[in-house]
Design a protein around this nucleic acid. Structure first.
Lengths: 248, 248
DNA sequence: TTCTATATGTTGCTTAGCGAACATACAGAG
DNA sequence: CTCTGTATGTTCGCTAAGCAACATATAGAA
């Protein structure tokens, strides 16, 4: 039996989002009053495929999943966005609409900013623009690696990768997530996740119960994962190192 | 028996690359003398994973494949770049290095530009920058769709998608490509491609022989393909419509 | 406490695609 | 014309993961 993770000791603070923290320099500071704090419940759909983007989101304690949903209803996760990034890159990339659905994968807090405001800041160029583009580049790496992972790795490996990606974006070592939902994200059957999770639990790597997963042995989890996790992590660290002061 | 496609009636011309054509406006025109025409043989590696980018490439009659190669040697194609785009986006995205390998998938011509020159133009902002970012957005869509396709679709469907993507980037309806190479791109076994191609040939959709594939019935090919091809095509058309005059 | 919706466990069957080992067939060199 | 390397065809067994149809267990509501 697992306790519900206590994720709310801190007061919400824009600086909990690393990208936002790095952005809030110089003139960008004037946007601070325009940041709107919101709470994101599990499953909330922030963008629908093909829809227009009214805001961009900076998750702090929440995690957003970029999902592509196919004609027949099957889905697959393209990338995740947590406290390291921003949701809504197609806004400044010029797309206006997004081709994927954005769903809250882990409930928590976020800050949002009106689309127009971010676009204006972006088009000013300079460090803000450069940082946003570097983040986009990191996100591209994540997508590319997801494609590779989908092609070559087993459900268990992908589950490990997915858990690690989530863990890196949370303060806790627990996450609230049913196997059914994980299966949706990975684009596999629920039974496949059940089996893989069962194996991981038997080996003392994770502990789970009705929608709560606790990672007990992170080192082993990394070993069971495919290389994809490390590849993405290294690239994020390279492109967005300490964040503070890199926006130069 | 198929004749080798005659792809060289035209004199090489930068305007054969749609993106370059759209870029060569106003001040960007001064870059024209810096464009270097080159011929790209099949299989040539333009970027190695992790390497530094000395040039960006604008394919005209060639097609470049972005491949990710895993630790164990297995590979998968992330995206393709042809006469609609530019190779080397990580340059202006701020990455400096690329995380995937770029290989010539279809021999032909291209123009290249010194990395520094493109970076300078990009950082000027304005229409050039906007167009490059829109193209990047389209490329992101292609990567995301590749991820989905890898998860859910059969080898045959993916082969159809791949043929269509290649076709769109060529003037001819024939391509020079062995099944072995296609298998590498798709990240599947050669035998799988042989079987799928055999079926397509039996139904009169394609015709092939020792490294030459001719698409006979494009309409049927589109029907056999998964939705992924159309999704990507629609997004490219939306983001980069007629090209001429959109860089505003 | 009991009930119920939801989460997880399990099993049998089927199939796509892998790995490996081999057969054939064609193109271009000599 | 023959030889040879390369491209394609075929087969066997195997496994991961799909589909389907259940059984069980538990948290929270009543």
């Amino acid at each position: 039996m697992l306790a519900t993770p206590n994720l709310r000791p801190q007061t919400p603070n824009p600086k909990q989002n690393h990208l936002l923290d790095a952005l809030l320099i110089g003139e960008f500071n004037r946007l601070l009053p325009n940041l709107e704090h919101i709470e994101l419940p599990l499953g909330k759909v922030l963008y629908e495929s093909g829809g227009t983007l009214s805001h961009v989101y900076f998750p702090t304690t929440s995690i957003i999943s970029l999902l592509y949903v196919m004609e027949n209803g099957a889905s697959a996760e393209i990338a995740v966005v947590g406290n390291e990034g921003i949701l809504g890159i197609s806004l400044f990339m010029g797309g206006e609409t997004t081709s994927s659905r954005a769903v809250v994968q882990s409930a928590g807090h976020a800050y949002r900013l009106k689309a127009q405001l971010l676009k204006e800041e972006f088009s000013r160029g300079g460090p803000v623009q450069r940082l946003l583009l570097r983040y986009t580049q990191a996100l591209i790496t994540q997508m590319a690696q997801t494609a590779v992972c989908n092609r070559h790795h087993t459900v268990e490996q992908q589950l490990c990768r997915w858990l690690l990606l989530s863990l890196d974006r949370l303060v806790s070592d627990e996450l609230s997530m049913t196997q059914e939902l994980i299966a949706n994200m990975l684009g596999v059957r629920r039974e496949g996740v059940t089996e893989a999770a069962g194996r991981l639990q038997q080996e003392g790597i994770i502990l789970y119960s009705r929608g709560h997963i606790k990672v007990v042995d992170r080192a082993k989890l990394e070993k069971r994962s495919c290389e994809c996790y490390q590849v993405v992590k290294v690239e994020f660290d390279r492109l967005l190192p300490a964040f503070h002061g890199i926006a130069t």
